[in-house]
Amino acid sequence: MSTTAQLREESGEAGTPDAPLLELRGMRVFYGAIEALKGIDLTVGKGEIVALLGSNGAGKTTTLRTVSGMLQPRHGEVLLRGERIDGIKSHELVRFGIGHVPEGRRVFATMTVLENLEMGAYKFSSVDSGDLDRAFTLFPRLAERRSQQAGTLSGGEQQMLAIGRALMGRPELLLLDEPSMGLAPLIVQQIFEIIKEINDQGTTVLLVEQNATQALGLADRGYVLETGSVAMSGPAGDLLADSRIRAAYLGEGAA
């Protein structure tokens, strides 16, 4: 990316007019000799929730890790607001408006809830009390446990903390990797309600999720990955009604 483009991103100005917020073009990613992503194309429009579905090993987490700079594509492009961002280091992409909540939550176990949230605001010169207030309003349980070590929280509370930490960076695009994994159904419902609220507040979401019913019930559009390729894509309602999706992910026989 050019210096001009970097300055434009850092100043908050738009990139290419009318470009999708996020676009992947022909993206191929390898782990050694193994091709994990086989030339996928994907777009996420500003304000959308887009679900990325697929079985284990389909390439969902690899896709998010590539968008956030943790992996580099061997071929293809990653564009944010029409400007290429592949090749930019992961910690620098936070300044471009990308927040990533990884699979497994990855909170700092020996740090308090408050310290974890403050770490999410590292791109700013100081922590904004308004950002903390937002996190505590979205997740009142975190406010109650602000002085508690993160490692002592329940799985659901740690997921709330991981999302809250990402929001402290004020992302325009939030990448969520399996937010429902290992959580009780009631907590899963709460997490998905909060994701909807975050989106309603203006944050675009790319959601990796194996719970197809929950994900497609929340999303505007969806993509289905199979062994590193896009097998299906379309409006979330159409995918949810598709007999192949219902057979593969909802345990129903294909019509």
Results as ranks from 00 to 15, higher is better:
M1K: 04
M1Y: 11
S2Y: 04
A5Q: 15
Q6M: 15
Q6V: 14
E13A: 15
P17M: 15
A19L: 05
A19S: 14
P20F: 02
E23Q: 11
M27C: 05
V29H: 01
A36M: 03
D41Q: 04
D41R: 12
L42D: 00
G45I: 09
I49A: 06
V50I: 06
L52K: 06
G59R: 00
G59V: 02
R74M: 13
H75L: 15
E77S: 13
L80T: 00
R81S: 12
E83I: 07
R84L: 04
I85H: 04
I85Y: 02
I85C: 07
D86I: 04
S90G: 02
S90L: 13
V94C: 06
G97M: 02
I98V: 09
H100C: 00
V101H: 03
R105V: 00
V107K: 07
F108N: 10
E115S: 01
E115Y: 11
N116T: 11
L117Q: 02
L117D: 03
E118P: 07
M119L: 14
G120I: 03
K123E: 06
K123N: 06
F124S: 09
F124C: 09
S125L: 12
S126G: 05
S126D: 10
D128V: 07
D131V: 01
D131H: 11
L132P: 08
F136E: 06
T137P: 01
T137R: 08
P140C: 08
P140R: 09
G151R: 10
G151M: 08
S154P: 10
S154Y: 10
G155R: 05
G156M: 07
E157N: 06
Q158G: 03
Q158F: 01
I163N: 00
G164F: 02
A166Q: 00
P171K: 02
E172G: 09
E172Q: 14
E178R: 03
F192K: 08
K196H: 12
K196E: 10
K196Q: 15
T204P: 11
L206R: 07
L206C: 02
L207W: 05
V208Q: 06
Q210K: 05
N211C: 07
A215E: 10
L216G: 05
L216N: 03
L218G: 07
L218K: 09
R221L: 12
R221P: 08
T227Y: 15
G228R: 11
S229D: 09
S229N: 11
G234Q: 07
P235N: 11
G237S: 14
L240Y: 14
G251E: 05
G251S: 08
A255L: 14
